[in-house]
Amino acid sequence: MTPTPDHDRNMNQPDEPPPPARPLERWFPRDPTTVGDDPDYRFTLANERTFLAWVRTALALSAGGLLALTVLDDVRGEEFLGIGLLVISFLTAATAYRRWALNERAMRLNTPLPPSRLPLLMAIGVAIVALVAALIAALN
């Protein structure tokens, strides 16, 4: 098979079928820099900035939960608000690295980026927390 010149290659076509990810690897991805080729560094840095934005979101939720627990001492039900925010913070932090690793792996193997449910789950989680906060405000 004659090698295709770089300018003829369609960047959207995968070079080869990606190696199937073992089920454990989908939850705990390996270092993605061990597979594939270096993508354009702009995409790698954009992926990195997205990951850092998710980490900042998790840290902000954690700060909000800790603040709720510390400041709202006489408010009935404040533990639910604080613990709820901290749980969402933990889940976001735990998912963010996996997102980064799967995206990096897909970019290196020239496959489509895997879909992410993280924004939807974040929206649902924060909406629930807002409802809980409204309930607490109404009950006090």
Binding site: F51, L52, V55, A58, I83, S89, F90
Partner: peptide, 14 residues
């Protein structure tokens, strides 16, 4: 590093 430390500290806070 930042991924693991954030998970550890938010888990500890929880």
């Amino acid at each position: 590093f930042i991924g693991i430390t954030t998970v550890v500290f938010s888990g500890a806070a929880m």
